[in-house]
Design a protein around this nucleic acid. Sequence first.
DNA 1: TCGGATGAAGGGTCTGGGTC
DNA 2: TGACCCAGACCCTTCATCCG
Length: 588
Amino acid sequence: MKFRTFGWVQNPSDFTKLKKTVQVFDPKSDQYKELTNHIVKNVIYFNSDRKKLQKKLDKNVSEFTYEELVGTSRNKKNKAPKYRKDAIANSLLQVTILSQSSKTKGKLYTDNWTADGFLRWAVSLNFVSYNREKDTFKITELGKKLSNSDDGSSQEMNILQEAMLSYPPATRVLSLLATSSKQSLTKFAIGNNLGFVGEKGFTSYDEGLMIDWLKSVATKEERNNIRRNIEGTSDKYARMISGWLVKLKFVEKHTNKYKVGINEYISGFQTYSITAKGLHAINQANGLSKNKTKKKFVMWEFLAISNKQDSEQTRDFIRTRRAKIILGLKHHHTISALVNYLKHEGFNMDESMLNSELKKLISFGLRIKIVGKTIKLQDNVFGICIPDQSFVPANADIYLENMKNHYRKITNLPERYLELLDVAFDHNRHQDFEIMTAGIFKDCYGLSSIHLGGQNKPDGVIYNNNFGIILDTKAYEKGYGMHIDQIDEMCRYIYDNKQRDIVRQPNEWWNNFDKNIPKDQFYYLWVSGKFLKNFDKQLKNTHYRTNINGGGLEVSQLLLGADAVMKGNLDVNTLPNYMKNNVIKLVI
DNA sequence: TCGGATGAAGGGTCTGGGTC
DNA sequence: TGACCCAGACCCTTCATCCG
């Protein structure tokens, strides 16, 4: 059986198109008639696809398979295209959603990923239901109401608002905004606290770090690049959900300016705040009377998303475990009772792992009250259907989960930084690694930390009034050894910073350091998942060539050090003492 | 910017020739 | 002749940024 993912939606934003998506399942709707009479004939490329879909529409069929709805990515030769803009239309939703370039280029269909997004959106809001056995979709009673409502009517608005209040990630965003009602939030601040925090597929960047980065670059192009291109997946979800809530009048959007000099301002990241209407709605949805509390719609497919390196079995194992936790919460009101129940169901979890899962379910959007050892699910959840099948997680995933849990037990670090244990070994996520490393220095070590990135700049600078560190991060799957070119690179940064010669390095990245740092208090630092034996030579060589001290910090020590600083066991001002051109041990 | 668009990863599936 | 196997090509699903 095919297991799909719902609940997490990337691209869609237009409720008009959502309604059209729902109407594809309603033979009485205008969109269905349009498809039947014109669109399929004119836009579906291959005769075979056209015939197949037209036949169903002519019969007023209202249940379609994933393939008929989302289609695939094929070119005019019916092969997987090298560039996806060469893809032709081959599904109902592709031709229901006009592309962004419909007006400029006359392209009358979207790609399969956006089609998938609209289908996910419709399913996630309970307008369309999914049949797992048949891999088919059809309209729900709620979907029929939406389909039949007049466009732009208050009834339509009501249906959308009500549906959104049943969707946990949206109520999570509303709750976050309600809690910080005095201050509006960026997508980063929301993304940090949304979804299954600390897992792949839910990356989020630190707000302060992103603002500093935006302020640190010199040109408009660089700023546009950061504003346009740098966001974690959770930050993206936060932006999209906030955008929906703006359209439903629950949230307001604000533009911001940041001061970067005397009378010099740059435009910053947008922020969101809750409206009076939004506050009223979330208060009602969370109503004290159980009967009035808005039910939350949750499907098994919402409860974890595919992780690249993890097997699908791991994803589905986690989904089932989370579903069992939610169901267990209905009858078990202490941590130990829930641990026992889960054990009985075949899931061995200790308290710290369960606590972490509960926190993730909270950031997913369920209200779970934890007081001491007692727990209470405050939401009435419906829609969960667990497949009658057991899943076996991959060994590598079990190992990683146990390691993370070990760090949960011995540290008080925010969950999202535990993901460093994974990211540090994944070269595909080097940007994540850079930003998260800079983030932990800021967030947990309490230092100023600016992520730089880009050409001819180190990955970041870390400093306070007393010292400055040039940061470079290296994500290597099997550990980091010696790399001559990277010694050269670091030496260049060290000389850049020593000489501060604008002709030699026009981008002046060193201006990000505090101006009062004594000249002899600059250090270099490599951070990696693991250093191999010959890395030592790299450190000695760098010191020999520059006469500057520095070191290498493995991610495990980065985390333990962060925890020690937060607990007051390590004075951050002693960091320079560890810079002895060795691999550093902050905590033994 | 908003509202998608895009290239890529990597596991899944198909194909077709070889072997029993 | 057909069942089975295996490797490589091709495809599907899903990001994680990217962009008109």
